[in-house]
C-alpha cells in the first residue's frame, strides 16, 4: 500500500530538483517523487495509487486508465534517460507548462525570434521564422491534417543524445494521431 507523500516533503523535493523546460507536469512530478516511488513500488504493481497521489497534488490528469498508461510510459522513459544521463535528474522547473503553447513542442534552449549575438533562433521547420503553434482543435481539418511536422531543412540539431527537437515532434505527432482517432478519421485506425 502506498503511503501519503506529504505536501511539505514534496515541496522541498520540488525545490531541490529542477525540471526540464519541456517536461510535462506529470513527468516532473514523477521526477520529483522518483526515489519514493522506486522504494514503494515493485515492477508490475498498479499505478492507480500514484495517479491518486498525483491528483492530490493538483495535477490535472485524464481518466484513470489513460493516466496510468501515461505514468507507466513516462516512468520507463525516465528510467532510460537516467541510465544514459544521470545528470538529467537535475532539471529546472517550468511553471508555464500548461499554457496554450505547449513547451513540449519546443526544443530545450528554444528562444523567440530575437537577434541574439547576431543569430536568430531557427524554428523547427527550418523556415527561419518562429514556428506558429496552432492548437490541435483549430488544426482539425479532416483529410488535410499535416501529420507530417514540416521538415527542418538543413536542420540544426543540438547534438544532444536526448533529441529535444525529435521528442517535441514525436509528442506533436502522437497528439495528432490521437486527435484523429478520436474523430474516427480514416487511415489511422484499423477496421
Amino acid at each position: 500500500m502506498t503511503g501519503r507523500f506529504g505536501k511539505e516533503r514534496l515541496k522541498s523535493l520540488i525545490e531541490n530538483h529542477r525540471a526540464r523546460d519541456s517536461a510535462t507536469p506529470l513527468y516532473r512530478w514523477l521526477l520529483t517523487n522518483c526515489e519514493d516511488i522506486s522504494a514503494l513500488r515493485s515492477k508490475g504493481d498498479s499505478w492507480a495509487p500514484y495517479v491518486a497521489a498525483a491528483r492530490e497534488d493538483g495535477l490535472d490528469l485524464p481518466d484513470e486508465k489513460e493516466a496510468m498508461r501515461r505514468m507507466e510510459r513516462y516512468w520507463r522513459r525516465m528510467a532510460g534517460t537516467r541510465r544514459m544521463h544521470p545528470e538529467a535528474e537535475q532539471v529546472p522547473q517550468s511553471p508555464d507548462t500548461e499554457s496554450a503553447m505547449q513547451p513540449s513542442r519546443f526544443p530545450r534552449g528554444w528562444r523567440p525570434a530575437v537577434v541574439d549575438d547576431g543569430r536568430v533562433s531557427c524554428a523547427p521547420d527550418g523556415t527561419g521564422v518562429p514556428a506558429q503553434i496552432v492548437p490541435a482543435e483549430e488544426n482539425a481539418q479532416v483529410a488535410s491534417l499535416p501529420a507530417t511536422v514540416p521538415v527542418c531543412s538543413d536542420s540544426e540539431t543540438t547534438g544532444e543524445k536526448n533529441f529535444p527537437i525529435g521528442r517535441a515532434r514525436a509528442e506533436a505527432i502522437k497528439r495528432d494521431l490521437l486527435a484523429r482517432l478520436k474523430r474516427k478519421e480514416p487511415g489511422f485506425h484499423r477496421e
Binding site: 527542418c152 543540438t158 533529441f163 525529435g166
Partner: peptide, 18 residues
Amino acid sequence: LENEAVLNALDRGAAHGV
C-alpha cells in the same frame, strides 16, 4: 516514436507518415 534512431531522425528534420 520512443526509439532513439527514430527520435534522432525526427530531431534532424525527417518527415513522418503512417
